[in-house]
Computed example of a mutant assay.
Amino acid sequence: MKAFPASLLALLLAATTMLPGTASARSSDRNKPMDIEAGYSDYSMDDSRPTVLTGGVTITQGTLDIRANRADITQRNGEAVRAVLTGGPVRLNQQLDDGKPMDAVATKVDYDLRNEVVVFTGDVNISQPSGSISGQRIVYNMRTGQVQGGGEGAGRVKMRIMPRNGGASADPEPASDGDEG
């Protein structure tokens, strides 16, 4: 099987740390071995077609854990240029440098390595203790740090930003009818 650059997944996961006040994806994970497991693989020894992994794709590297039904990796001149993960849904989990967990879920994750743009589509939910962002389409430009969500035909975006003091829970308080009984 072709070797995938460790930076591919490290950069993909760095995209999920786009919420305000977040820490970086665990940097030491990039120095760990990457293990890839799938029910089936189809690849060519040259760059003539994408490498396709199907049948319960699992990718782990340090604290990084990715689960998808399918991964399509396109390479040019031996370098990965695009990774498309699809599934029911794609799940990404990683411990951040500050030790806190990060979880991301989407129907599809499309990472353009050349332009450093990650597009999460289909029931996207990216969460960590500092907050969350969800919607049908979230685009993260890793070069500029710009995050775009929603827009025409892509539904609404929802964000929750937790207070820095950690005093509030992630679940909203139930509405009160004014009677304190």
Rank of each mutant, 00 (worst) to 15 (best):
L53G: 03
A25N: 11
A106S: 14
R30A: 07
L12Q: 14
G87D: 09
Y111S: 03
V90W: 05
N93L: 07
D47V: 01
R137P: 04
L64V: 08
I73Y: 00
N165S: 13
A168R: 12
D98H: 11
T17V: 10
G78S: 07
I66C: 05
D47S: 04
R82S: 05
I138P: 05
V139D: 11
L11N: 12
V119E: 12
E180A: 08
A3P: 09
V124N: 05
F4G: 03
S169C: 01
D65H: 10
S130E: 15
Q75Y: 00
L9I: 14
G122F: 07
D171Y: 01
V157I: 10
D98G: 05
A154Y: 08
N31K: 10
T107Y: 04
I59G: 04
E37Y: 00
L8D: 14
S28R: 06
M18F: 00
P172A: 07
G88Y: 03
L8N: 09
Y40R: 12
T58K: 14
T58G: 09
R164I: 02
D35T: 13
N77F: 01
G181M: 04
Y40F: 13
L96Q: 12
G153C: 12
L96P: 04
N77D: 15
V124D: 12
R91S: 11
M142W: 00
L12D: 15
L92S: 06
M34W: 04
L9A: 08
M18K: 06
G78V: 05
P174T: 01
G87T: 06
S134N: 14
R156T: 09
D98N: 15
G135Q: 05
E79D: 15
Q128I: 05
D35R: 09
A15I: 01
R70W: 06
V81L: 09
R76K: 15
A23M: 10
T16K: 00
T22R: 05
A154F: 12
A104M: 10
S27T: 13
D29R: 01
A80Q: 04
T58A: 11
G166S: 09
D35P: 00
Q95A: 10
R164S: 06
Y40K: 11
A6V: 07
A71S: 15
M45F: 04
S132V: 01
G78R: 08
V124G: 07
A80M: 02
A10E: 13
Y40S: 08
R82F: 04
D65R: 07
A170E: 14
S41P: 01
V57M: 03
S48F: 02
G62H: 12
K108N: 04
S27G: 08
G78P: 10
R114D: 14
D65S: 10
N141C: 03
S176I: 03
E152V: 12
G153F: 08
D72T: 11
R82G: 02
P163A: 02
T51E: 14
L64T: 13
V119N: 13
L12S: 07
A68P: 05
S24L: 05
V105N: 12
T63E: 11
E79K: 14
R137H: 10
Y43P: 01
V90Q: 08
S169G: 15
A83D: 03
V81A: 10
L85C: 12
S48E: 01
F4M: 06
D98P: 06
D46R: 01
R164A: 06
G155Y: 08
Y140W: 03
S169Y: 06
I138H: 08
P129A: 08
S176C: 01
S41C: 02
R156N: 11
T51Q: 09
K100M: 05
R143H: 07
I133H: 03
S134V: 01
I73M: 02
